[in-house]
Design a protein around this nucleic acid. Structure first.
Lengths: 201, 201
DNA sequence: AAAGTTATTGACCGCCCGGTCCACCATTCT
DNA sequence: AGAATGGTGGACCGGGCGGTCAATAACTTT
């Protein structure tokens, strides 16, 4: 009934996301987005609305993807749950220390847009964080079931603590903290987890 | 030999800091700074240079103040060192959860300016974080000396881990995480610290 | 083929951006 | 008193900002 779109929406959104990711929200201009996507201004506005809506759109999918990719990384049998979790967090430490310096869009977006009453951003971020915490809880419960974590421990409390470490890694990595330090933090946090009595050395 | 300044430099810098703190770097305009300080543009540029230099200036003192205020909060005899540290971090948790939402300028500035190769910002941030870590290490060493922390523990490793939690609190608080959760993370982290054998229950 | 509908492009809008510049002023030195 | 010095305020600059819009193109329906 009408002219079809000539661009791949997913591809455009990826380009937009990368722009916001690299430069931040305020520092990204609509011209930057035009250049990055190859679309004219009218197309961008027509398809996605204004800058803020566009940001929310990519922020949304970024959050969902983050939680989902974590879920995939952690899923598996009870037996290796604790080790998978530890391995995952070590990977985060290494990635955060990388020279990319772009860090995590979730952290960046929240830091930049939280203050000005933009609850539409913080709400999504909070939901993502809670989703991540739930993944941690799940892994720890698996580990507990398998006997790697003390029977009396509370997976949810431990998960919350690990979530704080997790977000801290990101923050410190962006400041340029070296990989060894970040990985050390993960190791130390895991050494503090209550080990099952049967496995205590 | 010439006309003296009519403004209080410290006061002006405080106003500038608050502007950057509330709105972020990119979103703060020079007009905002003129309004906040009451100074004309010429005075601002004459006294402090351009926007970036001005930001570095206030960022510098903010970092120094942060480390120093932490030092003051933690200083004291060996006896209460661990408890002071715990109390301090609980205070951070409560403050991060506050409805102010402005969070920590150190975190915000780093998140916003780290990516674009602005090592002048990240260098200062990293130095501040290392200063904080040193304070933690110091308190933990005191606690160890007093027997609150296991003799075999390594204060520096534990301090690094607590630093990650510390920065995580800030990040999660900005997203709107509730106070009870944040305080819980601190409690859990402290429960994981290796307790002196003499004091183990 | 004509009508209807939507995508696309880029010119255009008013405004505000960071930064410069200069006329003016308050002070100190001679 | 007058020159010299440096602080002050604001007009001014070119350009980039977010956002709008009308002309045109590409498709479907009748």
């Amino acid at each position: 009934m009408a002219r079809p779109r000539t661009f791949d929406e997913a591809q455009v959104l990826r380009a937009v996301r990368d722009q916001f990711w690299n430069k931040g929200y305020a520092a990204t201009s609509m011209d930057d987005l035009m250049r990055a996507t190859g679309l004219g201004k009218g197309s961008l506005y027509g398809a996605f609305g204004d800058k803020h809506q566009l940001f929310l759109r990519i922020f949304d999918t970024y959050c969902a993807n983050s939680v989902e990719s974590m879920r995939q990384a952690l899923e598996g049998p009870d037996a290796g749950a604790l080790e998978r979790l530890r391995h995952y967090m070590l990977g985060v430490a290494t990635a955060s220390a990388g020279p990319s310096r772009r860090g995590c869009l979730l952290a960046r977006g929240t830091a930049e847009l939280a203050s000005e009453g933009a609850t539409d951003v913080t709400d999504r971020a909070l939901q993502a964080f809670q989703g991540m915490e739930a993944q941690f809880t799940n892994s720890l419960a698996q580990a507990q079931r398998h006997g790697d974590v003390a029977a009396g421990a509370e997976p949810r409390k431990l998960a919350a603590m690990l979530l704080a470490v997790f977000r801290g890694l990101e923050a410190l990595g962006k400041a340029g903290m070296d990989e060894a330090s970040l990985r050390g933090m993960v190791e130390t946090a895991f050494e503090g987890l209550p080990v099952s009595a049967r496995r205590r050395r």
